Computed example of a mutant assay.
Amino acid sequence: MTEKELMLSEQLYLAGDEELTREFMRAKRLTRLYNSTTEEQMDYRAQLLKELFAKTGENLHIEPTFRCDYGTNISIGENFYANYDCIIVDVCSVTIGDNVFWGPRVCVYTAGHPIDAKVRSTQLEFGRKVSIGSDVWIGGNTVINPGVSIGDNVVIGSGSVVTKDIPSGVIAAGCPCKVLRKINEDDRIYWEEQEQKYKANKRD
């Protein structure tokens, strides 16, 4: 197997071979171009992101600055937004659903390193896939660790460190991140009332 094949299959691999270096440098070029754009270049920003990532929806926006390792291992659904200073270390696949919004400095890490110091010193590393469902809000300064899956309709509180899977339909927060409660009918009623108040205020 090639180093890339080992990497994507979540096995130990070495990152410095020719193929991975070429793809790494491609991502560095595209993110450099992206981070140097201005707010008048929204179409160009979208073009760069669609070139960088494996898959995107039509509507996506990431506030510069943004960093990733390869980009080609990131798949994003429709209607995605990430605020400032987002980092995705995508040595394995990162899959993001529809209607996902991130606060500032949300970081997704798929990379891991051996616990044993002798093996770690050989520069061998590994990755674990990350999956984020649809209709997810992630608060600022949240870290999502390797191997984590987050379900649909989830709110993650700011400053969380997500080390284990989070099921659908919950609010979770903390370090480590834990489920606080389910999202329920009272939440829907309250926020629909707030939406109606907003619409009434706009009519006034």
Rank of each mutant, 00 (worst) to 15 (best):
V162F: 04
T37Y: 14
E23K: 01
L124F: 14
Y44K: 15
N79E: 02
C175K: 11
A27M: 08
D43A: 15
I189W: 12
L124R: 06
V154I: 03
L48T: 11
K28F: 07
D186N: 10
G159C: 08
L52W: 02
G16E: 09
T38G: 15
A111S: 04
Q194D: 02
Y109H: 10
S36G: 15
I144C: 09
V119I: 09
T72G: 07
E3C: 05
C177H: 09
Y190L: 12
N35F: 08
W102S: 10
G140A: 09
K178W: 00
A173T: 01
D90F: 01
R203D: 09
S134C: 08
R45W: 10
N79Y: 05
R26A: 04
T95W: 01
A111D: 03
T72E: 01
S9D: 01
H113G: 06
L48Y: 07
K178Y: 00
C175V: 15
C86N: 09
E51C: 04
Y81V: 07
G140Q: 08
L6M: 03
E40A: 14
R105K: 15
R67W: 14
V108L: 06
V94L: 04
I156Y: 06
D204E: 15
Y190M: 14
L49W: 06
W102G: 07
V179F: 01
L52M: 12
I62F: 11
C107F: 14
